[in-house]
Design a protein around this nucleic acid. Structure first.
Lengths: 164, 164
DNA sequence: TAGAACGTTTAGAATATATTAAAAGTTCTA
DNA sequence: TAGAACTTTTAATATATTCTAAACGTTCTA
């Protein structure tokens, strides 16, 4: 009877971490985050490993990933030498930050590829068939247009504000 | 000298498919799509397996995934019994459709979880400590708020239009 | 109607990712 | 400063994913 709450928490941790996993976040990191999100008080590595039944080293690795994303923070608990963590409850900001960062990374990569291709096509003009070159030029132009549209949007759109 | 164009295409297929992979799309599906996107004419399974140096079965599996997403379509080539495919050049629509579909799926799942949790907390009220219940209620309420905010936005925002 | 020309399925091999257990490193306390 | 109480790293193992090769099924052609 006493563990009814614990059971519900288990369920939520499970359900929510599936969601996290479907967003491409490590499943265990998702579980840890939700565990901390739901917890009344900060938790130590030992408590987390106990609740999720995973090894301490694995908790350590994942909690540091969460820290890097500012999804959790270490808190001081007087009288204890352990590290305690609590969740940053502003989940949306965390997710949006991650998304924005990821998108930016990817788009920078594309930029390089497209420009490199344009250069190469320029150099090729007299060595290849006219149709081939024309086709490639068209396609690259199309790709570039898409790139510009999306990255222009990304630059302006402060997703965070939309959601707050 | 003749293969300069092929080399550039290889590069683009590689670069672009890394991008696709970073979006959670199968790497090979990404390669196939870009190959078809850049191609002057529709390609057969054999041509694709040859260009990407992968087995025919694997081309088959991935091309059908692309077909399901409406990213490529089968085209008729007279005089040949083979299946030929060409890319849907409206890449943004494809990506946005996929994103929207994926997000909707995930959000429906969350809805269930949150409502289930609310029900359970209701049933628990007299069997658990006041603080515990209060904490959980607060957290679930917070989660619900986020859910509503995001899903409301999703419902209204026609990403496609923004990008067109 | 045999068999050639395809595309699809499948069982298993190769590769990559997630996870553990234990060793190593660090910091605090007596 | 020894050693206890922690966290982090690492090497190995378990699990999941990607990919192939070959068998299979279908449709077309002669």
């Amino acid at each position: 009877m006493l563990d009814t709450v614990d059971k519900l928490i288990d369920e939520l941790v499970d359900g929510g971490s599936n969601f996290a996993a479907s967003l491409g976040i490590s499943r265990v990191a998702g579980q840890l985050y939700i565990l901390l999100f739901l917890s009344e008080k900060p938790l130590s590595l030992d408590e987390m490993m106990e609740k999720l039944k995973i090894s301490k080293g694995y908790v350590s690795i994942n909690i540091r990933a969460l820290e890097r994303w500012q999804a959790v923070r270490k808190v001081w608990v007087k009288g204890s030498r352990k590290d305690y963590y609590e969740a940053n409850l502003d989940t949306i900001s965390i997710v949006v930050n991650q998304l924005e960062y990821g998108l930016r990374q990817r788009f920078e990569g594309l930029d390089l590829i497209i420009n490199r291709a344009k250069g190469k096509i320029g150099q090729m003009k007299n060595t290849q068939s006219k149709e081939q070159i024309q086709n490639l030029e068209d396609k690259i132009k199309k790709a570039e247009k898409m790139y510009n549209r999306v990255s222009g949007l990304l630059g302006k759109l402060d997703l965070l504000k939309l959601l707050k």
